[in-house]
């Protein structure tokens, strides 16, 4: 099946490569987010955002830390890796001008609307999805900071409205990130097959 497709191509496209700093960001982001998510659910279980103490709790195998204190230990350790990694990545894409070329642009949006080329459309969608996750990652930090230091950052906590809204927004980043991981992986495979995925991990 695969061979018949490749045989029709005049020549195989160049092997994709990724900048070492992009790969580093990707790895640290995945690993720190995994710790943030699992320890975050441990903290969630101490008093579920939905329903309080009587609310539904996440099963043990999804949790990290063993108890509330342990979950908080992991959460407030991994936060440094997660947030500083995102900060350094932000500086990197600014300084290197990557933000101009590597993220969704108006031409991608146009392609999504009018292009007849399925490959171009998939590519545009792929770029759009991984661009959109950046503000979500920032939102997780800002809503987390507003809960961690609601006194020192009272202006930030105030932007989110009530405490329940703040907790809900912080929590909502979890399903968004999980959904993103699935969609992003599938799109990466669609756009560049395992070669593209390998280029980001290895």
């Amino acid at each position: 099946m695969t061979s018949s497709v490749t045989a029709k191509r005049p020549k195989s496209p160049p092997v994709p490569t990724q900048a070492i700093l992009a790969k580093t960001f990707h790895w640290v982001n995945i690993l720190s987010l995994l710790v943030m998510l699992t320890s975050g659910l441990q903290i969630y279980n101490a008093n579920p955002v939905f329903g309080g103490r009587g609310g539904w709790h996440f099963p043990d195998f999804l949790l990290l830390g063993g108890w509330l204190g342990g979950g908080r230990n992991w959460h407030f350790a991994a936060m440094w890796f997660y947030s500083l990694n995102l900060l350094f990545y932000g500086l990197y894409i600014l300084i290197s001008h990557r933000w101009k070329k590597r993220f969704a642009s108006s031409s991608d949006l146009k392609a999504l609307q009018v292009s007849q080329n399925v490959k171009r459309k998939n590519y545009a969608l792929h770029r759009l999805i991984y661009t959109i996750i950046i503000p979500v990652l920032l939102l997780a930090i800002l809503s987390g900071l507003a809960m961690y230091k609601p006194v020192q950052f009272h202006w930030l906590a105030g932007l989110f409205g009530s405490w329940q809204t703040l907790r809900t927004i912080h929590f909502i980043t979890v399903p968004i990130v999980i959904l993103f991981t699935v969609v992003h992986s599938l799109l990466a495979l669609t756009v560049g097959s395992t070669r593209l995925v390998k280029s980001m991990f290895l």
Partner: peptide, 22 residues
């Protein structure tokens, strides 16, 4: 994930001690 589940409270004390000063 399963392994992570078994080892949940493992290291959480050490992680806390390592990052509490910061």
């Amino acid at each position: 994930l399963l392994l992570g589940g078994c080892a949940t409270s493992l290291f959480s004390e050490q992680v806390g001690q390592a990052f509490e000063p910061l």
